[in-house]
Every structure is written in C-alpha cells, then in structure tokens.
Design a protein around this nucleic acid. Structure first.
Lengths: 150, 150
DNA sequence: TTTACTGCAAAGGGTTTGCATGAGG
DNA sequence: CCTCATGCAAACCCTTTGCAGTAAA
C-alpha cells in the first residue's frame, strides 16, 4: 500500500490525516514482526521526539477501526498485525517472536468458509496462532537438555 | 476428568493439592464458557469466602504449567480454556461470549500436522479464534440497522 | 473557522509481588 | 517438621482519560 493509498483510505473513513498517524500506520504496515506498542513508539520517536504513548494508543485504535490493522492480544502485551489475509502465525514460547507463515493459508481460507457457511455465526476475521519453539530456540533447548543429562 | 484423576495429575506435577486449588481447577474444567479470572473468583467465592484474587492468579499459573488449562489472552482480560484438543473458538465481537465449536475440528488437526511436518517450528499448542457476531447479536444488529433506515 | 488531534499529566484497572500466617506431605 | 500455599496489602505497569493548545480541512 502506497502512502497515497493510505491517505485516501483514511480520508474515506473520515479521519484526519496527520504526520503522526501516517508514521504510526507505516510503522505497522511496513513491518512483518507484529510490533508491540513500545516497539512502534521507539520506531516512530526518531521522527517525532515529542510523541507520547497516548497518541500511539489513540492512533492504533483509529487504524483498527478503519480496517487497516488488527490487534493481537498476548498475555503480557498486545502486538499489531498488518496482514489481514487469513493465515497462520507462529508464536515462539521462548523468545516471543511472531512470524507469519504461508503454510496452511489455503486451509485457513477453507476453514473460514466452512465456519461461515455451516454455523450461525457471522465471521468478521480470524486469528490462527500456533505456539511452540522456533528453530533457534528449539536448538538451544535441545542443547540445554543434552548438557543437563551429562 | 474425575476429582481423583485431577488430584493424581497435580501430584505427578509435584504441586500441593489444596481445597482452593481443586475448587479453582474444577471451576475451569467443568465450564465451557471460557471464564475470566473475575468469573472464576465469583464462582469459587461461595465455598471460599476468604479467597483473594492473588490465589486465583497463582493457581491458574500452576494449572497452566501442569498442562490442565490454557490461558486465552483478550484485549481487556484473559479467559481460561479447558478444552486443549485442537478446535475452533467462536468469539462474539458484540457480547464477548466465547464458545467452542466442533465445526472444523478435523481441519485444525490437519493444519497442525501440516505445520508440524513442513515447517522448522516445533508446535506445542494452537489457538484458532473466529471473531464475528453470534446469532443473537447478529439479529440485534440487523434490527438496529433496519430501524435506523426508517 | 470549526472540528478534531496532539501532548502532557493524572487516573484507572488488571496483574504481580512480598511477607506473615497457616496447611500439605 | 519442613516446605510451600494462602491471604492481605501494596506495588507495578500497561492503558485510558481529561484538558489546553494546535493543526487539519
């Protein structure tokens, strides 16, 4: 999504387009790591040193209502997702990283169709998270376990 | 799961079995509505009027580490799930209710197998939430929209 | 010019922590 | 008996709110 399209999208939703909002929107839209509020804050602060967290929270709420992003609540904090297409998130229990995967994307689409058609539930969106260990953390865990058996 | 099995399970995990813990565990295990901490508190308080939220939080942590329940973080609060089998949750945007559905259960199982086999990610568990409007709230929403068009 | 957004500070509320007392194994 | 859980209160931290000044349209 170009900045021009982003501006048009926001105007369509009747929200004022400010430099701060564009920066926050782009910080999420141009990311793939599902940033937290703090991370967005740190990334935007370079260009807007006076910006406060209140503006971040407010803007993220606006962006979610406009259908540009999606909040992903976790136990300790919320992360923000810009990939609104049905897909699977891989959530590492150890390091906390969250990555999208294209694996199973078709299956999620079919699952959404199934729920939409065969239940009395109007589906708006979905969240599919697989929790476990990313390759790096799985290797470190294996090393720890081998070491403890010596 | 019988109370006897529950006690044995907890002992296997080396955690002390107290009346409070049994009550909290059973409040979650015997529920299907994914209760919040507050709801668990209210349900247990009848039998343990002096119990505080600190005990609820502590116990829920123990039960999760023992593999009996799963925390489901939402934006405003966490709910607790006792159905650890792969399945789909239906989350109503309007009223906040969360219900399990057996629809798509096979598909979630296959999806889990796919991710486990074809990625470098060690899957531990998964959470599949479809957000939208339950039948009751969908009907109310339709009524509101019809009324506003008069 | 009007309306709504930003920045700041303070309040809010769910969750965690520390400690003395009490109960489980 | 020793260790750990409970209950109570205070602390914590993420998030929200209210308001004065300011910028978007």
């Amino acid at each position: 999504m170009t900045q021009q399209e982003l501006v048009a999208w926001l105007r369509d939703w009747g929200v004022r387009v400010t430099p701060q909002r564009l920066a926050i929107a782009e910080a999420v839209l141009n990311s793939t790591d599902h940033p937290s509020v703090q991370q967005i804050y740190e990334r935007v602060r370079d260009h807007f040193p006076s910006m406060t967290l209140a503006t971040i929270y407010s803007t993220l709420g606006v962006l979610e209502k406009s259908g540009l992003i999606q909040e992903l609540p976790f136990a300790k904090l919320s992360r923000y997702e810009s990939n609104l297409e049905p897909h699977v998130n891989l959530v590492c229990i150890e390091c906390g990283n969250v990555v999208d995967t294209s694996l199973g994307q078709e299956a999620v689409l079919r699952l959404k169709a199934l729920i939409s058609e065969e239940s009395n539930f109007d589906v708006a969106w979905q969240r599919v998270d697989f929790h476990g260990w990313c390759r790096r953390c799985a290797l470190e865990r294996r090393d720890r376990e081998e070491a403890s058996q010596v």
